[in-house]
Amino acid sequence: MAKLYFRYGAMNSGKSTALLQAAYNYEERGQHVLLAKPAIDTKDATKVSSRLGVTRDVDFLVGPDDDIRLLFGEHRERVRNAEEDALMPEAGESAPDVACLLIDEAQFLTREQVDDLLRIVVLDGVPVLAYGIRTDFRTDAFPGSARLMELAHSLEELKTICRCGRKALFNARLVGGRFVFDGDQVAIDELSADRVTYESMCAECYLRESGGRLDGR
């Protein structure tokens, strides 16, 4: 039975690397996959990019108002038609199809889009592997991540460590190299004079930098 998987972790826990490895594993066995990510993640534009330097173009971007199941259906049909045109299956062989949908930066999906991921799994019979972070720099859950925690058949934590060597849980935001604990939930790290960056931290180090604040308070 197809399942909805949510593989989550703090920044730098290798989520995009794991996604690209999963795609490679499917394709090495002659299966087809589709890659997608939310359009709000403007870093690397239309690519999934790992910190190891491996990149790959996504098959489609998901806007905040997009019907993700409809987008998936359109690209699934494209895969089916392209493969059938290239090589008609012999008698007794199954027609080419998408074996898996992989979603990067899944925390940026809406709750409704996550609901449709479950529908893709249950009604369309295609496994979905979603990768993302649980919480923002204020320790609040992203809507997409919260809904994935509620709906996913399988939850898997990808681990990384804090500067002190403990397990990292939170994602602290820095602007121009200084920690900040107020601001919009979404701020993509980019090159600028006041560059936004993030650091994965354990609870102890996070509370030390925030002066004991959680949830921006």
Rank of each mutant, 00 (worst) to 15 (best):
D215H: 15
D59N: 15
A106L: 13
A193V: 06
H32C: 11
L117T: 04
G211V: 03
V79D: 00
L70C: 11
L19M: 06
T42P: 00
E74L: 12
D189F: 01
V79E: 04
R134S: 12
P127Y: 06
G9R: 02
D124K: 07
R29D: 14
G9M: 03
V114G: 11
H32Y: 13
S50P: 09
E112A: 15
D85L: 15
T55G: 00
A130P: 06
A36H: 02
K167W: 05
T197W: 01
E27N: 02
H75E: 14
R208K: 15
N12K: 11
A99H: 04
E156S: 12
G212V: 04
L102D: 05
V186L: 11
C164F: 00
E105A: 00
N12F: 13
T160H: 06
V79K: 03
A187T: 12
L207P: 04
L158T: 00
L109C: 11
R80Q: 12
E157F: 00
R217D: 04
I188L: 05
K47I: 01
D97S: 15
V180S: 06
F179W: 11
R29A: 14
Q107T: 03
A2S: 05
G73R: 15
A203W: 13
D189L: 02
T46I: 14
V114I: 05
D41I: 05
E28R: 15
R134G: 02
L4N: 06
G53W: 03
A152N: 10
R208H: 10
N81T: 14
A82P: 09
F142P: 03
T17H: 06
A95F: 15
S50V: 03
D65S: 13
V54K: 02
L109D: 09
K37G: 00
E105D: 10
Y198L: 02
P96W: 03
A18Y: 04
L151F: 08
R29M: 12
L71H: 10
S145K: 04
L101W: 01
Y26K: 11
K159R: 11
A141C: 13
L102C: 08
G176W: 10
F137H: 10
A39W: 00
V121N: 02
L151H: 07
R138T: 07
G30S: 07
T135E: 11
D194N: 13
E204M: 00
L118K: 13
L71W: 07
R119I: 05
S13K: 04
F60M: 12
Q21M: 12
N12H: 02
D115W: 01
L52W: 01
G132K: 08
